[in-house]
Nucleic acid binder design. Structure first.
Length: 112
DNA sequence: AAGCTGACGACAA
DNA sequence: ATTGTCGCCAGCT
C-alpha cells in the first residue's frame, strides 16, 4: 500500500502531466493547472515544480509561463541550464524566450 | 501558530 | 497599451 506519504494529490497530478510532455515540446503552468481542473492554480503548478526539483523525472525545463519565457530558469542549478536543456531538444530559445512557442506548445488538455 | 512568499494568469482601472 | 490587484493553495520563516 502507500509505502510513501501522499504529497498532496495536486502535486502528483502535476508531475504526471509534466512527465508526459513530449521531447522537444513545452507547455505552460496555466495549461497544466487547467488540465487538472484548477485553472487559477497556475502558481501551484510552479510551486509543484519547485518541489519536483530532485524528485522524479519531471522535465521542469519544459514548463514555462504562458508567454514562453523561462521564468523559472533561476531555480535551476545554472543560469542557462534550463535554456540549454531546451536547446538541446531542438527548442529555439533566445534570451530566455522560446521562439515559435505556439508551434512547440503542448497542450495537455487538448493533446492528452 | 500566524503570516508571508511564490516557477502564473486573468481581469480591472 | 500599461500597471496593479486578486485568486489559488501549499510550503516555509
Amino acid at each position: 500500500m502507500g509505502v510513501k506519504k501522499e504529497e498532496t494529490n495536486f502535486f502528483e497530478r502535476v508531475y504526471e502531466v509534466a512527465k508526459q510532455i513530449p521531447y522537444g515540446r513545452v507547455t505552460s503552468y496555466g495549461a497544466i493547472a487547467k488540465s487538472l481542473g484548477a485553472a487559477k492554480s497556475a502558481r501551484m503548478v510552479g510551486w509543484a515544480m519547485n518541489a519536483c526539483d530532485g524528485r522524479e523525472d519531471v522535465p521542469a525545463h519544459r514548463v514555462v509561463n504562458r508567454k514562453g519565457i523561462l521564468t523559472g530558469k533561476h531555480h535551476f542549478q545554472g543560469t542557462n541550464l534550463m535554456q540549454q536543456l531546451l536547446e538541446s531538444e531542438g527548442v529555439e530559445v533566445i534570451e530566455s524566450q522560446i521562439q515559435d512557442f505556439d508551434k512547440i506548445f503542448w497542450d495537455p488538455m487538448t493533446e492528452l
